[in-house]
Simulated scan of single mutants.
Amino acid sequence: MSQIQQLQDIMKGLRLVETAKHLPHLIREAEQKDLSFTQFLLDVTSYEQTRREEKQLNNRLKWATFPFSKTLEEFNLKEQKSLSNKQLNRLKDLTWIEQLYNLILLGPPGVGKTHLAVGLGIEAINQGYKAIFTSMGDLIHNLKTEEITRKSKARMKRIREADLVIIDDLMFMAMDQQEANMFFHLINDLYNQSSIILTSNKAPKEWGELLGDQAITTAILDRILHRVEIIHLNEDSYRMKHRSTIFGEQSVSK
């Protein structure tokens, strides 16, 4: 067995798997550039650090379960004039996460609420935060099955440990007493621990109708609205303006 193979086996034993694979290239590069021993060791350890950071980033993106990958750079402010470039940049710097602020993105379907939420989530992950995305329907399902299935238990654990929790389509359906109570306990767990982004087409004053219990609604709002920024996205639906049609340029009415 060659010395390189011995080194690779030792590295694998030390869990430096990616560096072990890349070691022959690093050695050749060191020989070609006549690097010092110190520089060579620096290159080896830097390579391992970079690979681990990339793997951690990929894992955080995977665990976030975004429905699609759209960044803030892809968010078209020309289509959504109710949000200024200055405001978007303030959101992008993520100081509000450090301050445990919540965001409520309000507006009708198709105006970009979910895109903005996902873009902020991706930005948070790129800056080292743990973010997770869930629809309201999936969240309720996971809460109801948390004590039954290992998958739901692991999912809820990640939600409670996240720095940023994105809940999409809040209040799209009415909740029964049990569901509303479980949702309150989750919000209470996240309070003063995580930032929450909520997207909804209903203003907070309407949430009581769907939660069905005014006491629970008040308790939830008390925690969410303690530190919150409410952003109204009121332009016409982007999807409707840019929808494709089987009729080409011809109007349906003709």
Results as ranks from 00 to 15, higher is better:
Lys12His: 13
Lys12Ala: 13
Leu16Phe: 12
Pro24Cys: 11
His25Tyr: 13
Leu26Ser: 14
Arg28Thr: 05
Glu31Lys: 14
Thr38Leu: 12
Leu41Val: 08
Leu42Ile: 13
Val44Ser: 14
Arg52Leu: 07
Glu54Ala: 08
Ala64Asp: 02
Pro67Gly: 13
Phe68Tyr: 06
Leu72Trp: 08
Phe75Tyr: 15
Leu77Cys: 12
Lys78Phe: 12
Lys81Glu: 14
Lys81Leu: 15
Ser84Gly: 13
Lys92Val: 03
Ile97Met: 06
Asn102Met: 12
Leu103Thr: 07
Ile104Cys: 07
Leu106Asn: 11
Leu106Trp: 07
Val111Trp: 13
Gly112Met: 05
Ala117Met: 12
Ile122Val: 01
Gln127Gly: 01
Ala131Ser: 09
Phe133Glu: 10
Thr134Tyr: 06
His141Gln: 03
Leu143Gly: 00
Lys144Gly: 04
Glu146Thr: 07
Thr149Phe: 14
Arg155Ile: 00
Ile159Phe: 09
Arg160Glu: 15
Glu161His: 10
Glu161Asp: 11
Asp163Tyr: 06
Leu164Val: 12
Val165Gly: 10
Met171Ser: 12
Met171Arg: 12
Ala174Ile: 01
Ser195Tyr: 11
Ser195Arg: 08
Leu198His: 10
Thr199Arg: 06
Asn201Gly: 01
Ala203Gln: 14
Trp207Gly: 08
Asp213Met: 06
Ala215Phe: 06
Thr217Gly: 03
Ala219Cys: 10
Arg223His: 08
Arg223Met: 08
Leu225Asn: 15
His226Thr: 15
Ser237Gln: 07
Thr245Ile: 01
Thr245Asp: 01
Lys254Asn: 15
